[in-house]
């Protein structure tokens, strides 16, 4: 029982990160109908920026805030310079975002080298243990921050004018444009949101997962799987998908085989795609598909 609880808790912590990254995917997808293959890079960039700022002497909170803003700006630039010009073709969108990922990774390798850069845990490296189940303090930060970010996102999307306009765009871009919603601005907001959420994910997991220039790829793929499981484009589904994926992975590693852990995640992805392509909660604005 202790083992099971330990697996589940570890899974949920990793799952929070997958969920946040998945939410980043949905923000971009809703605004542009592009799957951003460079999504993981936001998390990597933010973590490395924050680590450098901390080394340079900045207080942790400031370092994190600056890193998140920097990544937000980078994402807006990416949208302006590359994505906006790419049109709606699926393949072209995929290749351009892959190109963006390659460039960001290459630049990160130039700036930070190929070694991982550590970021200190927010409230010390210790952990809390009860009944043999251990939870690192940073894990509580991960869970708490994820909950707050998700709540804010929910409020933004359902309670603010801008959020409603954003959703309208996601459901039917043309109709939204006819209603006077500036779709270009909404694309920018989509990328800003995805960059910020991804950056937050990167920064909170960095003390646990130790980011380096190529860490974004694996996170991106897992985030994507979470997205599909949850229902593509659906932010709440994405979060749920992340938790489910994280828990499945650790339970699989614990009870079945650690070697096939990753394969199990992808088998889960295939199953969902085939049996329930809309994911757990169905696709956001699925009507148009």
């Amino acid at each position: 029982m202790t083992e099971f609880a330990q697996y589940l808790i570890s899974g949920l912590v990793v799952g929070c990160i997958y969920g946040l990254i998945a939410t980043g995917f949905t923000a971009v997808y809703n605004a542009t109908h592009i799957v951003n293959f460079a999504q993981g890079e936001s998390s990597m960039l933010a973590a490395l920026c924050a680590a450098s700022l901390v080394v340079a002497g900045a207080p942790l909170l400031l370092a994190i805030a600056v890193a998140v803003v920097v990544v937000g700006v980078v994402n807006i630039l990416v949208e302006r310079l590359a994505i906006r010009r790419s049109g709606t073709d699926v393949t072209r969108g995929i290749i351009i975002t892959i190109g963006v990922g390659i460039v960001l990774q290459g630049l990160a390798a130039l700036a930070w080298g190929t070694d991982a850069q550590p970021l200190p845990a927010f409230s010390g490296p210790g952990s809390i243990s009860a009944y043999g189940v251990v939870v690192p303090r940073q894990a509580l930060w991960v869970v708490g921050t994820t909950a707050v970010v998700m709540a804010l996102l929910y409020v933004f999307l359902t309670r603010t004018f801008l959020g409603k306009a954003f959703r309208a765009c996601a459901m039917n871009g043309q109709a939204a444009a006819l209603m006077g919603i500036p779709t270009g601005l909404m694309r920018g907001i989509g990328f800003l949101l995805s960059g910020t959420v991804g950056a937050v994910a990167g920064v909170i997991i960095a003390p646990i997962a130790l980011m380096q220039y190529d860490s974004g790829v694996a996170l991106g793929i897992k985030g994507f799987v979470a997205c599909i499981i949850g229902g593509f484009g659906n932010p709440i589904g994405a979060a749920l998908g992340g938790l489910l994926l994280g828990a499945t992975e650790t339970l699989a590693a614990g009870y079945i085989s650690s070697g096939f852990k990753n394969a199990i995640a992808f088998v889960l992805l295939l199953l969902f795609l085939l049996v329930r392509p809309g994911g757990l909660l169905g696709e956001f604005g699925a009507a148009k598909r």
């Binding site: 083992e3 330990q6 694996a218 590693a253 614990g254 650690s258």
Partner: peptide, 20 residues
Amino acid sequence: TEVFGNADTDMTPQLTKIRG
């Protein structure tokens, strides 16, 4: 013997098994 993926971010499950 337990194994983890080179890009994995958490080895707690494998080590929990070893703990047992």
